[in-house]
Structure formats: C-alpha cells, structure tokens
C-alpha cells in the first residue's frame, strides 16, 4: 500500500499573521512557520497504519517555497519513508485551481493507493483542495472524516457533515481528508531525525510535471484589492466593585443588545 500525505507549511497561529499589502501574498517572514497541525494528524493516520502493516510506504508531498524544505523534512523525521516537494518560482501566489492541478500531477507521478490530507489548513482554510484533486485524478473523495478505517481495497470512515455524521466508503485509489477529531501526531525522536537525513527527498519543478502556470486554458482567481482593517481598540474596562453585573446589564440594554 502506498499512502501519500499532503503536508503544508503555515504561519504559526500563536503569532500575528500578516499579508504583504504590496503583493497580496502571505508575508512569510512576518511570523514563525510550522508544519500545519492538521497535516501532522493526517500523517499520523498513515504512520499508524504503517506501524501495523509492514508492506506500507508513506510519502509526504508538499507544494511550497524552497524555504519550507526543513518543515517538509519533519515529516520524514516523524516516520515517512520519502518526501516530494514541488518548488517553482512560477507558483508564487498560485490560486486553488493551479495548486490542485500541480498536486494532482505530482500524485500521478508518485503513484498512490490512498491520499490523506487535512480537511482545512489553518491559514487558507479553504477546505476544497482534496475534492479538487480527487476530481482531477478521477478517484472518490471521502472527505471530512472523524475516523478512518483502511482495508485492502477500500477506505471507510465517519464523515462530519453540516448536519451530523454519516458513514462513507470509497474504493481505492481514493483521496480522503481528516478532521481534528483524529489523534495528535507522534513527536519525531532523535533516531527519526537522524534517519530523516538519509531518506529520499525529491524536489520537482513545474517542468518536471509538464505544467504551464501561465496557461490561459484555465481561469484563475486573482486578488484585485487588499486592505488592512484598522485594529480594534479597547473600550471601557472596569474592575468589579460588586456592581459589575448590574452595570453590564445596563450597558447591554442601552445598546439594545439585551
């Protein structure tokens, strides 16, 4: 079984995240970057399966700037057997459509029985790439899963929907995405970190994937204007002297909020 896990480097949500007002791109220098927590959980699903099924190969795949290589390598340290990073200047500011095409092309090249992704990244939080990739690859999407059960020829799980949960089943090859309900990932240990240095790490360009980022055959989403909202400012702050509840009630009533 070959499992490819899609991983993403994101700004650490415990810091302030910024957009560059000139380019409209995420300002990657403005905050610490980390391997997205939901990517780690997705990798954990694959590694947990590999722990009990010896004949399993886990590959991590990322489309990211060159600077993200160290973050992708963390996937190797956690236990993936190989890593593939798609790096190309022409991908700077790539929209969802181009990103999906690139990841689908990379997946075709790598080969897979199962693709596992997080349901939503913590930065873009679009929640659409797994379904887009599944469409390009003509495989089922079993997405937004709270639980995952991988069998020989199919993958099953409980899907979180907008109205409740339902069981979904997909025959493999398939693309699945998982929610935060799946377990936390393991930490890379020293042995894993050392072993990661010897594992295959392939870097692909758009030419390797035969993709033209500038093609006019596909319509692209572009940013046409961008503005920073003024930060909120603090209003009234009082220290409770025994009547704060009363005063808050009055404030809510005066502002027609109660």
């Amino acid at each position: 079984m070959k499992i490819v896990v899609l991983v993403k480097e994101v700004p650490d949500t415990y810091g302030d995240r910024k957009l560059d007002l000139q380019t409209g791109l995420a300002d990657r220098a403005a905050s610490e970057t980390v391997l997205d927590e939901i990517s780690e959980r997705a990798l954990e699903v694959a590694l947990a399966y590999a722990d009990s099924h010896a004949d399993t190969e886990v590959v991590v795949l990322s489309m990211s700037p060159e600077s993200a290589a160290a973050t992708v390598r963390k996937g190797l340290a956690m236990g993936a057997a190989a890593a593939v990073q798609v790096v190309d200047e022409a991908l700077l500011g790539a929209d969802l459509g181009l990103t999906a095409e690139v990841l689908a092309a990379a997946l075709r090249r790598i080969g897979f029985d199962l693709v596992i992704a997080g349901n939503q990244s913590t930065d873009g939080s679009g929640g659409v790439l797994p379904a887009m990739i599944a469409e390009h690859l003509d495989v089922p999407n079993a997405t937004s899963l709270n639980s995952v059960e991988i069998a020989d020829a199919e993958v099953r799980g409980e899907r979180a929907t907008d109205h409740g949960t339902m069981q979904v089943t997909a025959s493999m090859p398939a693309v699945i995405s998982i929610t935060e309900a799946l377990p936390d990932a393991r930490f890379p240990n020293f042995k894993g970190i050392m072993a990661a240095k010897k594992k295959p790490f392939e870097t692909l360009s758009l030419a390797d994937l035969d993709i033209d980022a500038e093609t006019t055959e596909a319509s692209r989403s572009i940013v046409i204007s961008l503005g920073e909202k003024p930060p909120r400012t603090a209003g009234t702050k009082i220290v409770d002297e025994g009547d704060a509840g009363e005063r808050l009630a009055e404030y809510l009533v005066q502002n027609r909020l109660a």
Partner: peptide
Amino acid sequence: REIAARYAARSRSGLAV
C-alpha cells in the same frame, strides 16, 4: 464547497472560497 471544488476543477473555472 466540495461540490464547488469538483465543479471548478472539472470546468477549470476560477474558484473563490
């Protein structure tokens, strides 16, 4: 959004989420 995703990928339309 997943229906929108599949349709946009199929028709190569620009997708804004």
